[in-house]
Amino acid sequence: MRRRGTGTPDIHGVMAEFNTPHDVVEAAHRVHAQGYRKVDAYSPYPIEELSHALGFHHSPLPLLVLLGGIFGLVAVYGLQYWSAVIEYPMNIGGRPLHSWPAFVVPTFDGTILFASLTAVLGVLALNGLPEPYHPVFNVPTFALASRDKFFLCIEARDPKFDRDKTRDLLRALPGVVDVVEVEH
């Protein structure tokens, strides 16, 4: 319960709890329609409509992975060409120095390797993981977000955020079980 300054407690946001995926999607729609943008929802499994409702755009990950793959392709083919033709030219079995049919195979693996590494590092970076501390874990019932409960959190950094009005808005949502403040 850290407090910043001496005035009101500086909170992360206000969080509403729901029992069904349907309710949280509906809540996300309404909150988004009210103009809130710094909103996040929490669910035990991926719900495509939830990210639509919150107005998320296409993930940039596919493009990053494509670039990672192209890098791997060029790098591994380049390595083979450079080592087999320029740096260490060697007649092996009478095959040409630039044996491109053979070079295709490691190049393929390099492409997949770099694309996969980009995908994994990319998803961690985009999600800001690893993240040792996050305020939402201060909510006592939040452990159920990984079981069978659904949560919606409007964050205090949203320009429209107002402690009382936002809380009342969430309380009025259909299917809401509980609304709590999320402390830092």
Binding site: E48, P62, V65, H134, S146
Partner: peptide, 28 residues
């Protein structure tokens, strides 16, 4: 878990990554 909290943002990127990895693992 690296601080995974099941947020919609997490899942959004996660689904994309998981499908991409599947697409890469298949030819591999």
């Amino acid at each position: 878990a690296m601080g995974w909290r099941g947020s919609a943002r997490h899942w959004h990127n996660y689904e994309s990554a998981y499908l991409l990895l599947a697409g890469l693992a298949t030819p591999l």
